[in-house]
């Protein structure tokens, strides 16, 4: 049986500090079993500026069993599946402790974004790239952040559209935008 009283308290606690940490947890429905967490991409990483959504499902035994967390925002990271958003993080598995909370767990996920562990990968392709071609990894991660983790006004689609309207072929625009990490001006320079 989920301890809803505790979940309720956690939500209150989390919202108090939402401005400071940037971490938010809101119920997806009204039963508190499904929640949505959001974390800002850590500063100084390819995820900077992005806002990442995480689907949270509480198991029956919460808080004695770990919450199930999965990125619903696509993210390019060695320990997060680029397909499903599954997260490889010890505290969400055997290192979970009932003394941890949704907020501390999300903080750990945020820390994972800043410190990838390519030796214990969830996504082998990403991990390979991280180890062998770090610059490409950074570019791809930044491009994905631009494409999926930013609000649409600043989103990549707008930039693509703009450049296509300037007369460049769409496929080329997309690949160059990806290569330069979504920077519109850099992309234009390259295209010219």
């Amino acid at each position: 049986m989920i301890d809803f009283a505790r979940v309720q308290k956690e939500l209150v606690e989390c919202s108090k500090d939402a401005e400071g940490s940037g971490i938010r947890v809101i119920p997806k429905s009204d039963n508190l079993v499904h929640l949505i967490g959001t974390i800002p991409g850590p500063i100084g990483t390819p995820y900077e500026g992005g806002v990442f959504q995480i689907d949270i499902t509480l198991p029956e035994g919460y808080p004695f069993e770990p919450p199930k967390m999965q990125f619903s925002t696509k993210v390019w990271h060695p320990n997060i599946s680029s397909q499903s958003g599954a997260i490889c993080l010890d505290i969400l598995k055997d290192q979970w402790s009932p003394a941890l909370t949704l907020k501390t767990a999300l903080l750990s996920v945020q820390a994972l974004l800043s410190a990838p562990q390519p030796d214990d990968p969830q996504d082998a392709v990403v991990a390979q790239q991280y180890l062998k071609d770090y610059q490409t990894f950074v570019n791809t991660a930044r491009y994905w952040t631009e494409s999926f983790a930013k609000t649409s006004s600043r989103g990549i689609e707008v930039k693509v559209q703009k450049l296509v309207e300037m007369g460049f072929p769409e496929a080329q625009v997309r690949s160059i935008l990806e290569a330069v990490g979504g920077d519109e001006n850099l992309a234009l320079e390259r295209l010219l």
Partner: peptide, 26 residues
């Protein structure tokens, strides 16, 4: 009551021989 639930969950998980303290990293 929290301890009890913790023990219950751990034993169900088959970890009865080494049930660790609930505190993080203990």
């Amino acid at each position: 009551s929290c301890w009890t639930e913790h023990f219950f969950v751990k034993i169900n998980e088959g970890q009865s021989k080494r049930i660790r303290c609930m505190a993080h990293k203990c």
